[in-house]
Design a protein around this nucleic acid. Structure first.
Lengths: 226, 226
DNA sequence: CGGCGGTCGTCAGCCAATTGTCATGCGCGC
DNA sequence: GCGCGCATGACAATTGGCTGACGACCGCCG
């Protein structure tokens, strides 16, 4: 998943980044409100983590502007203050969850997991489709009850597709959500990755829609041709 | 055992944590109702200790929500009020035991033991896996009945892994659980530690899942919360 | 105080798994 | 049937993890 972390304290930001990345996410960072607003408004994220005490543009304002522009990704608010009224303001502004500093990194990760799966309509930490199950808590994939050994990159790709069952994801989108941002995009890398996954999960788990991208499950109704 | 302690008074919370940890348990803490609810809902615990007078979301409500979501771990209620009707409400909400503050720590621990025993059928201060036994009461490790001399750091790492059998723990997570918080993280330190433990406990006790982390036992087949 | 033994982080070099790149060939969809 | 987009096998680069050596540090003890 691609996650935007907005946090002005470098040390905290780096810690969050490390934790998120070791769970297989792609992290982009911003250290001030304006950058945050711009990034969140112009790029596609699966989740935003937003500190309230920001230079140049307050966190709540950033959130409000995102929502005003129709950005719908889940937002997890971080704050040092534990104020009831501030919390209400955030919720009204469209925050999805709220975490008071200091917090334990495990709790942070638990909330991230909760938001990510809530956002895509899944209720549990497991995504399943046919006889394939992705357990996001332990980063593991099972097929027919048997564990399948996926490498980290392979896992990321499967994880992303499983969050978007029935929708064809173009290679460029996969690239953006799986690799760090400055990655030199080469479509073939994704193709190779898909081929390797198919060797492990079967040829028909990841399907191709020529010209549109890859998908799992059945294509949604209305994915008609233009 | 992994225990969730929900207590808003920092001092009491820390005391409970110390007592539980020195009995060989792993403790996670929450200081308000919402955090408690999230943690208990998204992670697995063998027991929850729940104070009633919580900020942001009352203890009884937390308990009700857990039960409503199908969480079944035993719950020990702590309260300053000694009301008959309140107790009935808690029991109805799904509490397993009820302790009125102030209490002696010994009594608390006795009730914890009782609940754990009831829940798991057995409870001891020993974790064992194959021919390796970790006796958390005296902080020692035995292999095939013979004591093995582990240094403090080595012991902590083994102890942590034994509490999470079957799950690959990333180096970052190990670092956070083994060292003091602001420790300058260097992945190689963990690798070296693992190498030293392998020399003492055998090469195949701690296994590596490349890109994901270290684990003991067999990798989880992913059972747990549906 | 000074030597000793044990602990533990750092470093550099090595190895192997992972992952990107390339060349080539196939086949889907128009 | 044609051509572009995708698939694939081989290969190379990169990364993650392992190890032996080293030295800083600390507590102990004479």
């Amino acid at each position: 998943m691609r996650i935007l972390v907005v946090e002005d304290e470098r040390k905290v930001g780096e810690e969050l980044r490390r934790a998120l990345e070791s769970a297989g996410h792609v992290v982009e960072q911003a250290r001030d409100g304006e950058t945050a607003w711009f990034l969140g408004d112009t790029e596609d994220f699966d989740l935003a983590v937003l500190d309230l005490g920001l230079p140049r543009l307050d966190g709540v304002q950033v959130l409000k502007r995102w929502r005003a522009n129709g950005r719908t990704m889940p937002v997890l608010i971080l704050t040092a203050r534990d104020g009831w009224s501030e919390k209400v303001e955030c919720i009204d502004a469209g925050a999805d969850d709220y975490l008071v500093k200091p917090f334990r990194i495990e709790e942070f990760m638990a909330r991230v997991r909760a938001l990510l799966r809530r956002a895509t309509g899944h209720v549990s930490a497991k995504l399943s489709l046919g006889d394939v199950v992705v357990d996001t808590r332990i980063s593991r994939v099972l097929m027919g009850g048997m564990p399948v050994d996926l490498s980290p990159m392979e896992y990321r790709l499967v994880h992303y597709l499983m969050h978007h069952v029935g929708r064809a994801a173009p290679q460029i989108e996969l690239t953006e959500h799986i690799y760090a941002q400055d990655f030199e995009r080469n479509a073939n890398a994704i193709e190779v990755l898909v081929a390797r996954i198919r060797r492990k999960l079967g040829d028909d788990f990841i399907k191709t829609r020529r010209g549109y991208g890859y998908y799992v499950g059945e294509l949604d109704e209305g994915e008609g041709k233009p």
